[in-house]
Amino acid sequence: MISNGTAFTFAVIFGTITVLLVRSRNVRAWEAVCVGLFGVYLGQTPVVYTIHGLVLWMISGFSHT
């Protein structure tokens, strides 16, 4: 289950990245993924639970030592 605080935090992070990308007017593939994640977290669709698990899995993979 996603808490409101976690979803809000990810929405703010991906929203900030989206604003910076739109201002630069140069969007590559990984940047388009960030924009898409912002939309998913902002919309709170039922698929957000699966995507949130994937995002947490990726973050734990990068931070695992």
Results as ranks from 00 to 15, higher is better:
A29G: 06
F14R: 01
Q44E: 15
P46Q: 05
P46T: 03
V47H: 08
V22R: 03
A29R: 08
H52V: 00
E31A: 06
F10W: 13
Y41E: 03
V48R: 10
G43Q: 11
G36I: 02
S60N: 09
I17D: 06
G36S: 08
Y49Q: 10
I13H: 14
G5M: 12
H52N: 00
G36F: 08
N4H: 12
T50L: 13
T18S: 15
L21K: 07
I59N: 03
L20C: 10
V40G: 10
G43M: 15
G43D: 10
G5D: 13
V12K: 12
S24V: 03
V48G: 03
W57Q: 07
V33L: 13
S3M: 02
V55T: 12
H52M: 03
F38Y: 15
S60T: 06
L54A: 02
T65G: 14
S63T: 15
A7L: 07
V47Q: 08
V47M: 07
V19H: 05
G43H: 12
A11F: 00
N4A: 12
V40K: 13
R25F: 00
I51W: 12
H64W: 04
I59G: 04
T6E: 09
A11W: 00
L21P: 05
T6S: 02
V48L: 06
G61S: 08
T50K: 09
V12Q: 14
H64S: 05
H52R: 00
W57P: 01
Q44Y: 14
L54D: 01
T50E: 11
R23P: 01
A29L: 13
S24R: 11
V33S: 11
A11M: 00
V35M: 14
L42D: 00
V40M: 14
T18W: 08
H52S: 01
G53K: 11
I17E: 08
S60A: 08
Y41D: 07
H64E: 04
H52A: 00
T50N: 07
H52W: 01
T6I: 01
S24A: 06
T65Y: 14
M58P: 03
A32Y: 09
I13G: 10
V48F: 02
V22P: 04
T16C: 10
S60P: 01
P46D: 08
T18K: 13
G39Q: 05
T45Q: 14
F14K: 04
A32W: 10
V19K: 03
G39V: 09
L42G: 09
F62M: 14
A32C: 10
V48C: 01
A29Q: 02
G53C: 06
